[in-house]
């Protein structure tokens, strides 16, 4: 867990400080394509003579931003569904949980492909809004979140069920507090830890999904750099310039493993405080 946190802090710092130390990521130099590492370019240059280190860090900003936003959005959707199902029970519970099961049963990758290829214009989104880079990123976030909320929803429902039975919640119900108030004020704070853990663990997965979609040409597209599309772009030249593939590959690997270690650590420490009596 500590290792994970340290890696992540370093990564975030590097991504934030990147513009101060490294050259512009978009500066081309066709005369210096595939240059080896040098003082000017600590990791060398890419197929258009751009600074690899700088692109890596700028790509990291996009990849991390996408992954974190998606994880948060998925957590929000999952929490709402789980809270409603767990609190109200009955028909609402059955309907929402069957929906969750249904989404879980769907084959993830083909579904993402269909979603990524669908035309937002036919849904009534104005074409002007679709040309911006922000839209492309936002679209990816929404698509992945749409299929990624189920784990959180199940966890939240289970926790809500147990918390709802506690005395203080019953007391709140008895004094006539509104359901939304009870859910937000009384239940949510008590079920926060599984949400945090599940969300942390999902971040790594989302980074991998983004890279897979980039591999299929459906992720974030050049010239905007992300680790996924840098890695995909480097595949073709892996024989002549292996470093171009190794660095983004390593960045993805490190980040994903860091998030997983962190999530795992959080899980252990949070559950051990709440269930100390069970420990062996």
């Amino acid at each position: 867990m500590r290792a994970g946190a340290v890696i992540l802090i370093l990564l975030v710092l590097a991504a934030l400080l990147a513009p101060l130390i490294l050259p512009e990521p978009d500066t081309l130099d066709l005369a210096a394509r595939f240059a080896p590492p040098s003082p000017d370019h600590p990791l060398g240059t890419d197929e258009l003579g751009r600074d690899l280190a700088s692109r890596l860090l700028h790509g990291g900003r996009i990849s991390l931003a996408v992954a974190l936003t998606t994880a948060l959005l998925a957590a929000v959707i999952g929490t709402i569904v789980g809270l409603l199902a767990g609190y109200h029970g009955g028909l609402a519970d059955t309907a929402l949980m069957r929906l969750t099961d249904g989404v879980m049963a769907l084959p993830l990758l083909p579904l993402l492909i269909v979603l990524a290829a669908a035309d937002p214009a036919k849904l009534g989104i104005p074409p002007d809004a679709m040309t911006s880079e922000g839209f492309a990123v936002g679209r990816l976030v929404v698509i992945i979140a749409c299929v990624g909320w189920t784990t959180v929803a199940r966890l939240v429902r289970a926790s809500t069920l147990s918390v709802r039975a506690r005395d203080y919640v019953r007391a709140a119900v008895a004094v006539g507090a509104s359901p939304s108030r009870i859910m937000l004020r009384h239940i949510l704070p008590n079920i926060a830890s599984p949400i945090v853990v599940a969300t942390t663990l999902s971040v790594g997965n989302i980074i991998l999904i983004e890279s897979a979609l980039s591999f299929l040409g459906l992720g974030i597209r050049p010239p905007l750099a992300s680790w996924g599309n840098m890695l995909t772009g480097a595949m073709d030249v892996v024989w002549s310039a292996p470093t171009l593939a190794i660095w983004p590959g390593a960045a993805i690997f490190l980040t994903v493993i860091a998030f997983n270690l962190l999530g795992d650590g959080l899980q252990k420490s949070l559950t051990s405080t709440s269930r100390r009596s069970d420990a062996r």
Binding site: S211, A212, V238, F253, V256
Partner: peptide
């Protein structure tokens, strides 16, 4: 275990081929 779930599959595949 963590390493195995943290690698992009296409990258792993290509490295195996290489």
């Amino acid at each position: 275990a963590f390493a195995s779930v943290s690698l992009p599959v296409f990258w792993l595949g290509l490295m195996l081929i290489v």
